[in-house]
């Protein structure tokens, strides 16, 4: 397995603001990688460094086996980028922008262009200034997805799209993965990340705080337990990994770190379990935990 993106210890400051503070990111070729973090965490800055638009102050970044700053022009032939906030030239039509961006990359597949225009229900004859936010986003998406490239870098690509179009987007990304393309997907739509991504990296304040498959990340979080027991429970609230413990007669409710689940359940059975509801962590909880600490 080769790596498409390999970043370690990346640093970038804007004046006194330290935007990236030792960020690590590894994206394997052929995977769809979710790139998550609260607003201002440094996601777009990382992407701009990878595109050679910003020059890193320190650390190492490698993209498709090249240096993103030095080899920008050659590398850009092999990737397509969708910015989070798409601004178009007011006097150019959407179709012209798609062709322009395609030509500035490795080239455009006319059949896929036509197909994507239909699927995204986009009118290519309208001028840039008359498109809505969602339609501007579609212009950039069609240009990227119709391009003949190895790597897609998408910065919150579905912002402004309606649910129907989000669905179309998911289908397209699934097809990209089948075709063996690598995707770096920065997103806040957790359902989208859950549905599409093989692995995710969570960053906060310019540092990577978590990286791995979703299953691995779930393991690091808590399961919530509601139980009714034969006799009042004691001794569990002081066990390692137990949080938010509350008891009412024979009923208890608490959360437990997934790693400690086994020990806690053994303890529960000592008191005679009458009913047990166990809820795995939702993705939301996973992220809220990471996002909140930063606030």
């Amino acid at each position: 397995m080769t790596t498409a993106i390999s970043v370690s210890g990346l640093r970038k400051a804007f004046g006194r603001t330290q935007a990236l503070d030792g960020l690590d990111l590894t994206v394997t070729t052929g995977e769809v990688h979710g790139f998550l973090g609260p607003n201002g965490a440094g996601k777009s800055t990382t992407i701009r460094v990878l595109l050679g638009l910003l020059r890193a102050d320190g650390g190492r970044a490698e993209l498709l086996g090249g240096d993103p700053w030095r080899d920008a022009t050659e590398l850009h032939r092999r990737l397509a980028y969708v910015p989070g906030d798409v601004t178009l030239w007011p006097t150019l039509s959407g179709g012209e922008v798609i062709d322009l961006l395609g030509r500035l990359r490795g080239g455009l597949d006319p059949k896929r262009r036509k197909d994507l225009l239909e699927r995204f229900d986009l009118d290519p004859t309208k001028k840039g200034r008359t498109y809505s936010k969602g339609n501007r986003q579609k212009v950039a998406l069609v240009a990227a997805l119709a391009s003949d490239v190895e790597l897609l870098i998408l910065d919150e690509p579905t912002s402004g799209l309606d649910p129907l179009m989000e669905e179309v987007f998911r289908e397209c990304i699934a097809r990209e993965r089948q075709d063996g393309r690598t995707v770096l997907l920065s997103s806040h739509v957790l359902a989208e990340v859950e549905a599409l991504c093989d692995r995710v990296s969570i960053i906060r304040n310019g540092k990577t705080v978590e990286s791995g498959t979703l299953a691995e990340l779930r393991h690091l979080t808590r399961t919530s337990i509601t139980a009714e027991l034969g006799s009042p429970l004691s001794g569990v609230d002081t066990m390692a990994g137990v949080h938010d413990y509350s008891a009412q007669g024979n009923k208890v409710q608490f959360e437990v770190d997934t790693a400690e689940l086994d020990a806690v359940l053994r303890k529960l059975t000592e008191f005679g379990v009458r009913s047990l509801i166990s809820q795995p962590p939702t993705l939301e909880q996973l992220f809220l935990r990471h996002y909140e600490v930063s606030a």
């Binding site: 006097t91 039509s93 179709g95 012209e96 001028k127």
Partner: peptide, 25 residues
Amino acid sequence: GAGLLPERAGRPSGVFGTFGLAWRL
């Protein structure tokens, strides 16, 4: 956001590169 003249439709496609873009702008 609108001017007095109605917005006309553009061409559905067009092939030009960096210098073509500068020329258009």
